[in-house]
Lab assay of single mutants.
Amino acid sequence: DDWEIHFNNITIRLHGVSEEQIEELKELIKNGAHEEELRKWAEEVNR
């Protein structure tokens, strides 16, 4: 699925990401992940 997530003036566009991966991302954000951590997560997902 395609997703677009907005938070802290950042837009993250995701393509072909599962519901499970979105839940992981929500947890990262909820736990106060920094932009660098989110980038690493996105790189892993996009492999």
Rank of each mutant, 00 (worst) to 15 (best):
W41A: 03
Q21R: 08
N8E: 08
N31G: 07
E4R: 11
I10N: 03
E27W: 15
V45T: 06
I10L: 13
K26N: 07
I22W: 07
I5W: 11
A42K: 03
N31P: 00
H34E: 12
R47I: 15
E43H: 06
L14V: 09
H6W: 07
S18W: 03
W3V: 10
E44Q: 12
L28Y: 04
N31I: 05
R47D: 12
D1A: 14
I22N: 01
I10F: 11
T11C: 05
E19R: 15
I5D: 02
E27M: 15
L28Q: 01
T11M: 08
H34P: 11
I5A: 04
I29R: 01
E35D: 06
R13E: 03
E19W: 13
V45F: 14
W3L: 08
F7N: 01
H6I: 13
L28T: 00
R39Y: 10
W3Y: 14
E20K: 10
G32A: 02
E44T: 07
D1I: 15
W41Y: 03
I22C: 06
I22V: 07
L14A: 02
N9P: 02
E37W: 09
L28P: 00
A42Q: 05
H6Y: 09
R39P: 01
F7I: 10
S18I: 02
S18Q: 04
Q21A: 08
S18G: 05
E43D: 11
W41P: 00
I5Y: 09
W3N: 03
G16M: 07
V45N: 07
S18D: 03
N9V: 09
L38T: 00
R47W: 14
A33E: 02
N8T: 07
A33R: 01
E24D: 04
E36T: 08
E43G: 04
L25K: 00
K40H: 07
R13S: 08
F7G: 01
E44F: 10
K30T: 04
E24A: 09
L38H: 00
I10Y: 05
N9Y: 14
H15R: 11
E44H: 14
V45Y: 14
L14R: 01
S18K: 07
I12D: 01
I29K: 01
N46E: 10
K26G: 03
N46Q: 15
N9H: 09
E35A: 09
V17F: 10
I10M: 12
E24S: 08
I12V: 05
H34V: 10
K40Y: 04
N8K: 13
W3H: 05
E43Y: 11
H34M: 10
E23K: 10
G32E: 02
L14Y: 01
N31L: 07
N31W: 09
F7S: 02
I5S: 05
F7M: 07
E36F: 11
H6A: 08
K40L: 09
I22K: 08
E19F: 14
V17H: 02
A42L: 14
R47F: 14
N8D: 07
L28N: 00
D2V: 15
I12F: 05
H34K: 13
N46T: 10
T11A: 02
E23P: 00
I10G: 05
F7P: 00
L25P: 00
H6K: 12
Q21W: 05
N8I: 09
I5Q: 04
I5G: 02
D1W: 15
L14D: 00
I29N: 00
E35W: 13
E23S: 08
E35N: 05
E20I: 09
I12E: 02
E37Y: 11
E37F: 13
N8V: 07
E43S: 07
E27K: 12
I5L: 09
I10T: 07
L25E: 00
I29V: 06
Q21G: 02
F7C: 09
R47A: 15
Q21L: 12
W3S: 02
F7V: 11
W41R: 02
A33S: 04
S18R: 10
E27L: 15
W41K: 03
E27G: 09
E37H: 06
L38E: 00
K30S: 07
G32F: 04
